[in-house]
Write a protein that binds this DNA or RNA. Structure first.
Lengths: 245, 245
DNA sequence: AAGTGGTCTAGACCACTTA
DNA sequence: AAGTGGTCTAGACCACTTA
């Protein structure tokens, strides 16, 4: 086919032209998934280029995950790869909904407090004596207790919540409505033994440990927005994350 | 320096040896961030290798994000990106080193097994009766037991490990040496109660729960490479991750 | 034994940057 | 004009897979 030939007069590198030709063949299905593509020697003589050029084109597609090479066997077209859903920053409600569960909350306590040192350091770097808003809730999925959530918010952030029902509020949605957009959050995850009081709140036995998630969220301006400690029952909850190499 | 010279008799490719030498120079700060490294011609005459070999080594580090090339100007060491440190796919050894600890391992058991259904489904989708390599180790940080690691590998992957000491091996480095590059891993994290036998292996009391991390890693071709369950003592280990909104 | 991709050499001409 | 990395050639020997 004329249109799949190389243009030696073009300023576009030959290996790049070749790579695009190969990619088109894959997309059109001319080279189909699982099938062996022509050998390096075939490609060299057909396109009249050197081995280096063929290998540069093929290797670029290997890095893109479209081709797979096996020494001694040959090069095959990769079977389609699974979708990549990344570890996104979401709230409890959003997460439960994505798992097909109905999220809920039962409020235990709300008050302004002088935060523990470890919280103040992260949430109010610089400031010393300021109070913060403290909210303790039981988080529910399909009416069942799943976690104990203790969150700390700078007062100017907490003020945004005062017109909302804390048993149904989705904090992150309220923040976005008010123009505070989250950029990222750092999380520390560990396991802890279950205290009798927490076991009672969750309706479990103390022999079931808790998974503790500490989260500090930052706005797009780089300011800390929230410090939250959530203790999940390990018999009902698993934390999922995808890591990139 | 003698130890940074190439071994032409080794079965390890020259470009890979060169890449490791360059990486060490970057880590030691001999080549510092923002600084130009020697030109291709300098490297060719110093190491007595061809241009192809130098370029293969340098390009591998460009892909890893450690070096940056600019036509006409030269090649520089990338300035460190803070955000890349968290949420990256790393092995235990790499992670402990980044925390300033000396990683180690004590091998408990190695054998070929028919994997549990849950492992087979993930590691060998499609296949039914195949065996896999099973390795159980105690992971150490500064000689202290930190976790129990149980890993399953397809036999063709496991075969790559047979010339290595399992008490010092860094699996991911070996895979990369053999041309298997990891793209991402899915992890499930939960808390579990500590069994007496596991408490004994780790030298802790059963009242300290374990943090369980299940990891499935995938290669750039999209094939499952590893299924590993690691149970960490919760009094010595915390899992850190950064989430993006 | 034959065929595959993996590694490596020595050399050439080019585009881009800086002096 | 001189120096940098970018592209490309022709060839060699090797390790691995399959017949």
């Amino acid at each position: 086919m004329q249109r799949t030939q190389l243009d030696h007069t073009s300023p576009i590198p030959l290996y790049y032209q070749l790579k695009e030709i190969f990619k088109a063949k894959i997309d059109r299905g001319e080279w189909s998934p699982g099938q062996l593509i022509p050998t390096e020697n075939d490609l060299i003589s057909f396109y009249k280029v050197s081995r280096t050029t063929v290998r540069e084109a093929v290797n670029a597609l290997v890095i893109e995950g479209k081709l797979e090479k096996k020494q001694g066997k040959g090069t095959t077209v990769c079977r389609e790869k699974m979708e990549e859903k990344l570890g996104r920053l979401t709230g409890f409600a959003e997460e439960m909904q994505s798992r097909g569960l109905v999220p809920g909350a039962r409020v235990i306590e709300t008050k302004e407090v002088v935060p523990p040192d470890v919280v103040r350091e992260k949430l109010l770097p610089g400031n010393n004596e300021t109070k913060v808003l403290y909210i303790q809730r039981i988080r529910l999925a399909n009416e069942e207790p799943i976690a104990i959530e203790r969150s700390y918010w700078p007062l100017e952030i907490g003020a945004l919540f005062k017109d909302y029902d804390l048993s149904t509020i989705a904090f992150y949605s309220v923040l976005e409505e008010r123009g505070i957009r989250l950029r990222y959050a750092d999380e520390n995850i560990s396991a802890i033994a279950t205290k009798k009081s927490d076991a009672a709140l969750l309706g479990i036995e103390t022999k079931i440990p808790l998974m503790r998630m500490e989260r500090i969220s930052y706005s797009t301006q780089g300011n800390p927005v929230e410090f939250t400690i959530t203790d999940y029952r390990s018999d009902r909850y698993m934390y999922k994350v995808r890591l990139q190499r």
